[in-house]
Design a protein around this nucleic acid. Structure first.
Lengths: 196, 196
DNA sequence: ATCCGAATATGATTGAAATCACATGTTACC
DNA sequence: GGTAACATGTGATTTCAATCATATTCGGAT
């Protein structure tokens, strides 16, 4: 099921797609055809800067939506690349624009979603501002950013994978993180104040 | 005059305020009272992370709005600090919520603004992902981020002022930037292909 | 007019992350 | 089963921005 407020849309405005690892859902510069929902799998949004650097903008996992801002853009400004075998629902741009005009609740839902996205980006910026690799990795893990591979995680938080592995090891040694498996780390539960 | 779609609002929902350098318009954690428009001056939005680092989120100049996403938040999640003697218009949160329910065009305008803000944050993230100080500074200047002081600029793009000054000098030496005055730099106009 | 604080500017040193290099482990596919 | 591709993990070296230090200039306040 699609997240609010997209449940209000007609079935005809949706198209189910399948992607394999490495497939492009869309490319930077493509004309916008709609916004997307990840039914299962993972889609990574990356942008190539003028200098040729590649930046991960967003790592959409199962249940996430992406390219929401494209309703008001003529073309996508990043690449959407499949990182795991994925089922993706495309929601037609025309249908959204029609619904926006006709359905107040739908419109409000969209606005709220965008507001949340703004806050998410702010969080990411806050994270990126942490200079120390160890502090950054710790904060990122605590924020639940380490879902997929460490390589992806490293890219998302703006570190090399090597620096990331080292930070994960250091933090585990310090007891701030607990290694729960190969490439799996979780915050060590803090001893909470409890009533006696 | 307020930017679209805020012209539709009643005069009663606006309050004009004056701030001096260093004044707080609001603080991180304050309950949200509305969103703001900079009639003149400059307001800097900074956020303090758990580790005590301070991040510049946004540098609102004359004609800019800020705290737009606060419509859907109970409290502000950053500090708004005045960086130049400023006249600021506060737009009541209640009035906005009322208008959102009653006026479709207003609602659409708000949504569009948020979509643009999402893109702005993406741009900032892209900028922050550039590792080389020189490349980052060049890109930032080309994006028109160097409006106020170099110190502010440095903070906004995530570099120390020293690194920033050095990059500005290097880029000027390389001819990629032109020094137009003390603390003033502009991109050197590229030789465009012209019809013969 | 001058005193103070902040911004501009640059040089020297240092420290931490990037880079390079490489070993092992895992998965998927022919 | 073999192997290709990629993720995990760590060590050695280099690089480049942060930091420390310091001089100068500018603007505002007294």
């Amino acid at each position: 099921m699609l997240p609010t407020p997209f449940g209000a849309l007609d079935e005809k405005s949706l198209s189910q797609m399948r992607y394999s690892i490495g497939d492009h859902v869309f490319r930077q510069g493509d004309t916008t055809k709609g916004i997307f929902f990840v039914a299962s799998g993972g889609i990574c949004l990356t942008r190539v800067t003028e200098s040729g650097n590649s930046v991960t903008i967003y790592n959409a996992q199962t249940g996430d939506m992406f390219a929401e801002a494209s309703i008001y853009s003529d073309h996508y400004h990043c690449d959407a690349i499949c990182t795991a075998p994925s089922e993706v629902v495309r929601i037609s741009k025309q249908a959204i624009q029609k619904q926006l005009r006709e359905d107040t609740a739908f419109s409000e839902g969209i606005t709220k979603r965008l507001a949340v996205q703004v806050q998410d980006y702010r969080q990411l910026l806050t994270l990126r501002a942490v200079k120390s690799a160890n502090d950054r990795v710790l904060l990122a893990v605590e924020l639940g950013k380490l879902t997929g591979s460490v390589t992806q995680f490293a890219n998302q938080i703006g570190l090399t994978k090597e620096a990331c592995y080292r930070a994960l090891r250091d933090l585990s040694d310090q007891g701030l993180l607990t290694k729960t498996g190969r490439g799996r780390y979780a915050p060590t539960p803090r001893s909470e104040d409890r009533l006696p």
